[in-house]
Computed example of a mutant assay.
Amino acid sequence: MSASHSASEIGLLNAIIYMSLILAAMSLCVIFFLFLKRRAQEKKWSHKARRREFLDRTLRGVLAAPMEPSAASVPGLLKGDEDIVLDMAVDMLRVIRGKDVARIIALLEIWNIREYLRATLMRGGRGRRIRIVTLLAHCQDSESLDLLLEQTATEDPYVQLAALRGVADRKAVDHLSRIVGHLPYSRQRNTLMLADILQRFGEPAVPVLNKLALEPGMPQVRLAAIHSLGAIGSIDAVDALLKLASDTDAELRAQTLAALGRIGDMRAQRHILRGLEDPVDEVRAQSAWAAGLMNLREAMPVLLARLGDSHWWTRYRAAEALFQMGPPGVAMLHAATRTQGSGGEMAVQYLAEKAAA
């Protein structure tokens, strides 16, 4: 019995030893594999660093050279250089202007990276695609503009914004109708950034932006159109905005009144006066701001009452508007400081703020 136990124990012990040796060998193989992988990565990083340094010298040399770059005067690219060149070119284009921009673009054409750009736009990640559309915004040829326009229809809202900015920077107003045609149904949510981009198209874009503001669709896109119309400041936007001044959507209504205030057309007066009595806080606040921008003296009694509004921003905008109306409004504020409650407190606060400025 004991001999049998001894034999089985020896067999088990041998099995454990063999398994331990196998695991140790496997561990050594893994360590060796990781070592080789690390060496390969270090070699790759070292090669990439050398190429980056070389390409940086090349780009800076092109900018400093007395002549335009040509295929004979610049070295060719190696496989894998395209990513490096893209990053370096975009970083440079952010800080250079004029002829230097044209030289960098000419160098990229010599290096023939257009196919790389097109392929990366189709299959690359968000970050690479954004950098590519940023680069394309500095080009002047029709092919690069077509690539930008394609990206304005992408489902990725961040790439779409970058592409829209690129088209706006190239002043491609003729293509604005095509661009905004799908915006009401896009996933775009960044209202302020989209508004900043749309206003870059300037006054020629007003008819298209009017249509975009009036069309049903994503509220954020309509708000961006309204913001941009106010920033552009064209009276050609007033008729469209007046149609929205009584919209059932309170945020659209509020931003429309603010845009009308920025434009300053007196046809908006009755809408702004009505907005000061709106049940929605934001609408009252924006109406007070618009009244100040337009110097609506007819609104002064209502603005004085709004100093005691339940909404802090409405109280502040009312005080601001009265102050902007000059001596009569300032006199009203001084008189309000002698009253009790939130209206008197706001008048004191605003006048103190202006005195300290």
Rank of each mutant, 00 (worst) to 15 (best):
R170T: 07
T152W: 07
L164W: 01
Y158G: 01
L161M: 04
V180I: 12
T134P: 00
L147H: 03
A137N: 05
S144Y: 01
R165F: 04
A163S: 07
H175C: 14
L161P: 00
Q140P: 03
D174F: 04
L149F: 09
D156V: 13
C139K: 11
D146Q: 12
P184S: 15
A163W: 08
T152E: 05
L136H: 05
L148V: 09
P184N: 12
L161Q: 00
Y185M: 11
R170S: 11
Q160S: 10
T154Q: 03
Q151V: 06
L176W: 03
T152V: 15
Q151L: 01
S177T: 10
D146C: 12
L148I: 11
P184L: 08
K171N: 10
A137S: 14
G166I: 08
S144A: 13
E155W: 10
Q160W: 03
V167A: 07
T152F: 02
G166V: 10
A137R: 00
P184T: 15
A137I: 11
T154V: 08
R178D: 09
V167I: 09
K171F: 12
L136G: 00
L147F: 14
Q160F: 05
A163H: 02
L161V: 06
V167S: 04
Q160M: 15
D141L: 08
A172L: 08
R165A: 14
Y158R: 14
T154R: 02
V159T: 03
C139Q: 11
E155F: 13
T134Y: 01
C139I: 04
L176C: 10
L149R: 14
V180A: 05
A137V: 01
R165T: 07
D156A: 06
V180Q: 02
H175V: 05
Q140C: 09
A172Q: 15
V180F: 00
D174Q: 07
H182F: 08
S144D: 10
Q151C: 09
R170P: 11
H138E: 06
Q160K: 15
L176V: 02
L149W: 15
P184G: 10
T134E: 07
V173T: 03
